[in-house]
């Protein structure tokens, strides 16, 4: 990488070698850190359709999915903090969403179109304030054998009401 050359201009023989080696070692360490952790920490970002298509392959793997929350399906047990709800398929690509009329519209359509794929979700924890009908849920978790998506992290977007700077809700 360039930095070392930049920093050690006009090296004279001998004296600068140790800096080059030292710098190279640090850069190598950083590259190694990024490389190994990317491999270990990578999560597929899937749509509901993709997850269902590739269910066998994705079983037990940590993945990230997004979908439209079906308001009627929200069921929260306040004794155990177990939260159940279902999400319907929405396109994963921003361009597709914009082309289809914007996120709010796409979410509204998804919730009201029974022909779309849906996945039941289970999550344990505090029910986020933004969880409601036609919100977009972005979840990290694993698909179980029973066809339920067990979410470990649940983030929500509600574009219908607040177009501007809506913050995340996380658990």
């Amino acid at each position: 990488m360039d930095e070392v050359n930049v920093l050690n201009e006009t090296p004279k023989k001998g004296g600068q070698i140790k800096f080059l080696i030292g710098g190279a070692l640090i850069i190598a360490a950083i590259v190694l850190l990024i490389f190994t952790n990317t491999k270990a920490g990578a999560q597929y970002f899937l749509t509901v359709d993709e997850l269902i298509d590739r269910q066998d392959e994705m079983m037990g793997k940590e993945v990230r999915i997004s979908g439209a929350v079906l308001g009627d399906s929200i069921d929260y047990n306040t004794d155990t903090l177990v939260l159940h709800f279902s999400v319907a398929h929405v396109p994963g690509d921003n361009k597709d969403i914009e082309a289809a009329g914007g996120l709010a519209f796409v979410l509204h359509q998804a919730v009201n179109d029974p022909s779309l794929n849906r996945i039941p979700v289970e999550y344990v924890g505090v029910m986020p304030d933004l969880l409601r009908d036609e919100a977009q849920a972005i979840m990290t978790g694993k698909m179980g054998d029973d066809g339920v998506f067990y979410a470990e992290e649940l983030l929500l977007k509600c574009p219908t009401k607040y177009e501007e700077a809506v913050p995340e809700q996380s658990s």
Binding site: L33, I34, N37, T38, A42, Y44, F45, L46, R64
Partner: peptide, 24 residues
Amino acid sequence: ISELLTGQKVTVGPPFYERSTGPL
């Protein structure tokens, strides 16, 4: 990058950042 190279969107979560930046 991942979408460009493999056609599949892959994200890295907080553990990636924590493990990579921790030593630094």
